[in-house]
Design a protein around this nucleic acid. Structure first.
Lengths: 370, 370
DNA sequence: CTGAAAGCGCTTACAG
DNA sequence: CTGAAAGCGCTTACAG
């Protein structure tokens, strides 16, 4: 059925309003409570009655009124996602995964932003996002999200999307995550095997604790018995990656950098280029996430792919489990992180190039305007 | 108030449930209808009564129940955004603008995806997204969005975010857009003034008609009396931009390319690089949108900035106007597009380089893996 | 397995 | 400017 047809004819033949369960009941010759049981998948309905009601529902184009169900105290039928950003790839992809999953089971999906700029407002935003019979998924990868999570009362059905917890540190609420320890360790070992004396790390912020990707990086260096550098504070953006990358570019001992995400990697590559260093000939760079742009970077970025869309789906599946909804989603395997090899990695240069040597190379673009 | 405090004490001192308008009325010594008038900003309430009710509302932490308001036939208080994607920058930024604006006036915001992969499902998805007392913002930049818009019955309060319409072609429904004609013309003139014999265009898809950015490009070429190339069909992604860019890279007459968005530009730059052409020395590239990554591209991308977040806000402000909500948002100026000059543009090469000449330059990365 | 009652928290008429 | 009534479309008990 295409086009602007809205109000199906009900049993009486008029179309003033959408059909209600009473209309369905009348047309099917049952009581409206029975219709309620059918649409809520209650077990105590005979197969023949159920089939008749279902047929009538289809014929009349009946759709239950969400507001009425919520008001009457029915099971959850909508989720609000709380997050600090929709333009960061990981967040946007998670949103897509949640949306797709909610659509499959007839749930509504809302979104409410907690702004990093105004942390003092977060408790209020969270409180307003909570509605009777409502549920929550909190994207708590970053500090605003983690703060929001802390404000959610325990009785609100909530699943958190979090940074993978350190071993032994169980999250206090239902949570989902991608454990990137192994992939980060593998990426670091890969760089070490290429002859790099050590690998530097440009991390995303550690909130509230160290990230598993940092632990994987540390583990690889420790096993190789290689000196380790205290990483910087961390950031999320290319702008931060550029600034941090500019610092590393001044150090001739830096030949390999594992970045906490692809945004940082892009900024770091730009900083290296502006400092007269070639990627990957002078410095190898590895990212994290595999955003759609990464394969078109110059050079195409070697990175650790993370399936945030699958993680979003997993978060919603877990929410369904802990809520009072009769709907379920088939359980999917936990999303994995895996190394994607492209062209931003090369064997270590024979002699660590000094800044003065490198400056003799081809003319470079000026720093990006900011 | 921070932390998991949920149920404020009501007048009777118990906290089994959230306070209702009856609790507020009792505490304020008025009838509950008066409380209803206050929270709906009805004019016929005396200032003293209003102040007393407002004080009680604050004291009790009363928040009106959305579901009950919707069910009772109150004004709209939520909007569902319909769009095909959340990871494309323009879409995600528009979502942010809408979310921020809805939060300011206490509206809820939902999101529902119409999938490009399954156009046959779109009418059904749209129908399910429409709820009694609900409103819609349709992101109709692309074909799935435009199809969705066509399925929305006229009586549903709806604002469309669309490609700027051709002059004289008024949109049939309330709509907002950014007119990029002037900026596209300016970008093209800028390239022409740098001595490029002509400017090629790698467009986004024209749906349902030619884009204003293409018209601006055409106008600049026509005014300059320069030969024009029939542009390709168009695409949205870097993958498409890479393929289309690879075609242009084979043509030695191509020295300047205006891309329909930054994703295309990134792909085109990669294609030029892989074909042995330097950007901007051999080929100048201009993008559209100014995504946050653009300034870190190699070279930093000259592009036309578009404020999609402001456009999202404008869409919601218009929705408030055409809906029955008493809330309003201060009208903002129409979002403009403007040229941001960086380093992907240079004067035309003295002699158009042939592919064979260019192949003698520095070694290039292999094509990105796909 | 199926039916009749009460009520969720509001709103819009309708009175005064 | 303020109050008493009816009802939005469902649900969960409670009956049988």
């Amino acid at each position: 059925m295409t086009g602007p047809i809205r109000e199906p004819l009900n049993f009486a033949g008029n179309c003033d309003r959408s059909p209600s369960i009473r209309d369905v009941a009348r047309a099917a010759g049952v009581s409206y409570q029975t219709v309620s049981r059918v649409i809520n998948e209650h077990p105590n309905v005979s197969d023949t009655t159920r089939a008749a009601v279902l047929a009538t529902i289809a014929q009349l184009g009946f759709r239950p009124n969400r507001a009425a169900r919520a008001l009457a105290g029915g099971p959850a039928q909508a989720v609000t996602v709380l997050g600090s950003n929709t333009t960061l790839y990981g967040f946007a992809a998670a949103l897509e995964g949640i949306e797709e999953a909610t659509r499959e089971v007839g749930f509504g999906m809302g979104f409410r932003a907690v702004e990093a700029r105004s942390p003092a407002d977060i408790p209020d935003v969270v409180e307003r996002a909570i509605e009777p019979a409502g549920t929550l998924i909190v994207i708590a990868f970053d500090k605003p999200g983690a703060l929001a999570l802390e404000c959610v009362p325990l009785e609100v059905p909530t699943v958190a999307m979090i940074q993978a917890p350190t071993e032994g540190a169980e999250p206090t609420r239902p949570s989902v995550w991608i454990d990137e320890f192994a992939a980060a360790k593998e990426a670091t070992e890969y760089l070490l095997a290429l002859g790099h004396p050590t690998v530097h790390h440009l991390p995303i912020p550690s909130w509230p604790r160290t990230t598993r990707r940092m632990e994987g990086w540390r583990a690889a260096l420790a096993e190789a018995g290689v000196r380790m550098h205290e990483p910087l504070q961390g950031g999320w953006t290319s702008t931060w990656g550029y600034e941090a990358g500019a610092v590393l570019a001044r150090d001739p001992n830096v030949t390999a950098v594992l970045c906490g995400n692809d945004d940082i990697a892009l900024g770091a590559i730009a900083a290296m280029r502006d400092a007269g260093k070639r990627v990957p000939a002078d410095v190898s760079i590895v990212g994290f996430d595999d955003i759609p742009y990464a394969q078109f970077f110059a050079p195409p970025l070697t990175t650790v792919r993370q399936d945030f869309k699958a993680l979003g789906r997993a978060a919603f599946a877990k929410l369904l489990e802990i809520s009072n909804s009769p709907r379920t989603l088939p359980p999917a395997a936990a999303p994995q992180a895996r190394l994607i090899m492209r062209h931003s990695v090369a064997p270590a240069p024979q002699v660590a190039p000094s800044a003065s040597e490198a400056s003799g190379s081809e003319a470079r673009s000026p720093p990006p305007g900011r």
